[in-house]
Amino acid sequence: MWKKKHEEMIRALLRSNASPLAFARKNTDEAQLAQSMVDFMEGKGVFYVHAMFEDHKYVVESLKEVRAELGAKLDKIPVGDKLYDSIKLIRDACRDYMNNTSAMTSPIEMSANLAVMRKKVGIVLKSIQEQYGVSVGGNLAAKMPSL
């Protein structure tokens, strides 16, 4: 299995003029797992839909799904790995939102708490993008800080 992946990577490198380091980094198991996580998160409006259009019940439901997905990804990564730590930070940001916001929270508080959670997630996503070369697109990319 590893030999076939290695041969495919060498063939692709020989055909392109791209840096072998960037290509190799994108083809690691961690990078593929990171891309899978980002792709999943791009489908979750909780990370980018304007707070005015959000309903607390559905935000919490979506964050529960995100936390479950991230937990499953954590099981595939060695403890102490940078991706492991990054995923934990995202999961913690989602949990903090859920712990600090209730159904009785005012729309202004909900909006502020969403903004904090999105900022934390955006910072971590930027780090993951730089570390693993993953593609973060669309509305989710707009929540990442520009460095």
Results as ranks from 00 to 15, higher is better:
2 W>R: 14
2 W>Y: 15
2 W>N: 14
3 K>E: 03
4 K>R: 12
4 K>Y: 12
5 K>R: 12
5 K>A: 07
5 K>V: 13
6 H>L: 14
6 H>P: 07
7 E>A: 12
7 E>Q: 14
7 E>C: 14
8 E>L: 09
9 M>P: 02
11 R>K: 10
11 R>E: 07
12 A>M: 10
12 A>D: 08
12 A>S: 12
12 A>P: 07
12 A>V: 10
15 R>E: 12
15 R>W: 14
16 S>M: 00
16 S>W: 01
16 S>Y: 05
19 S>R: 01
19 S>E: 05
19 S>I: 04
21 L>R: 11
22 A>T: 14
22 A>K: 13
24 A>V: 09
26 K>L: 03
27 N>F: 02
27 N>H: 00
27 N>S: 01
28 T>Y: 09
32 Q>E: 12
32 Q>N: 06
33 L>K: 03
34 A>T: 06
35 Q>F: 01
35 Q>Y: 05
36 S>N: 12
36 S>W: 09
37 M>V: 13
37 M>Y: 08
37 M>F: 01
39 D>C: 13
41 M>V: 04
42 E>K: 05
42 E>M: 08
43 G>N: 01
44 K>Q: 09
45 G>C: 01
45 G>T: 07
47 F>V: 04
54 E>P: 11
54 E>I: 12
54 E>V: 14
54 E>H: 10
56 H>P: 14
56 H>G: 15
59 V>P: 00
60 V>T: 05
61 E>D: 15
61 E>W: 09
62 S>Q: 10
63 L>K: 00
64 K>A: 14
65 E>N: 13
67 R>S: 03
68 A>D: 15
68 A>H: 15
70 L>V: 00
71 G>S: 06
71 G>D: 09
74 L>V: 01
75 D>F: 13
75 D>G: 07
76 K>I: 10
78 P>S: 10
79 V>A: 15
80 G>Y: 05
81 D>K: 12
84 Y>K: 09
84 Y>R: 10
84 Y>Q: 09
84 Y>D: 01
91 R>D: 00
91 R>V: 11
92 D>H: 10
93 A>H: 07
93 A>R: 00
95 R>M: 15
97 Y>D: 03
98 M>G: 10
99 N>F: 07
99 N>E: 06
100 N>W: 03
100 N>T: 11
100 N>Q: 11
101 T>L: 01
106 S>K: 02
107 P>Y: 05
107 P>G: 07
107 P>T: 10
109 E>R: 09
111 S>E: 02
113 N>S: 08
114 L>N: 02
114 L>I: 00
114 L>Y: 06
119 K>E: 04
124 V>H: 00
126 K>E: 14
127 S>C: 11
128 I>P: 06
130 E>D: 09
130 E>K: 13
130 E>V: 13
130 E>R: 10
130 E>G: 06
131 Q>A: 08
132 Y>C: 02
132 Y>V: 03
133 G>F: 03
133 G>W: 08
133 G>T: 04
135 S>K: 15
136 V>Y: 06
136 V>E: 00
137 G>M: 08
138 G>C: 02
138 G>D: 02
139 N>K: 11
139 N>P: 11
140 L>V: 06
140 L>F: 08
140 L>A: 03
141 A>W: 03
141 A>E: 07
142 A>M: 11
142 A>R: 12
144 M>P: 07
146 S>K: 15
146 S>D: 15
146 S>T: 13
147 L>I: 15
